[in-house]
């Protein structure tokens, strides 16, 4: 298997990603210990996390690399979203999203 992926540079990049991600996680609380934020700024920071996650949802649901994906995945995500909105259990949401996409692909929808 490992001959398909040049292992050493990839492994080095993975460790660098692990370290870099840890530093990113560390820098938020570190910055905050240096500066005190007013309550309004704090609300704005919470909002920024939600906005990022919403964008991540849309990007992950609709794109693959630089291209838009076929309808099967976004429709699956939408079904999951509606179920979540109707307060369906979490696992039902996740399995319904995957199941919908799988069924659509079975029917020939990309």
């Amino acid at each position: 298997m490992s001959d398909a992926v040049p292992m050493l540079p990839t492994l080095a990049a993975m460790f660098a990603l692990a370290v870099g991600t840890f530093l990113l996680r560390l820098s938020g609380p570190f910055l905050r210990a240096k500066i005190t934020f007013p309550a309004r700024a704090e609300k704005l920071l919470e909002a920024s996390a939600v906005v990022l996650l919403a964008a991540l949802t849309a990007i992950a649901a609709l794109t693959e690399g630089d291209d838009f994906v076929g309808p099967a995945r976004p429709v699956g995500v939408l079904v999951g979203g509606v179920l979540a909105w109707r307060k369906a259990p979490f696992l039902v949401v996740v399995l319904a999203a995957a199941g919908t996409a799988a069924l659509l692909r079975l029917a020939g929808v990309p």
């Binding site: 996650l53 649901a61 999951g80 979540a84 995957a98 996409a101 692909r105």
Partner: peptide, 13 residues
Amino acid sequence: LGLDAMFPAVILA
């Protein structure tokens, strides 16, 4: 198996 639809559905929920 539609596994790629799971991640966005999780974050959305």
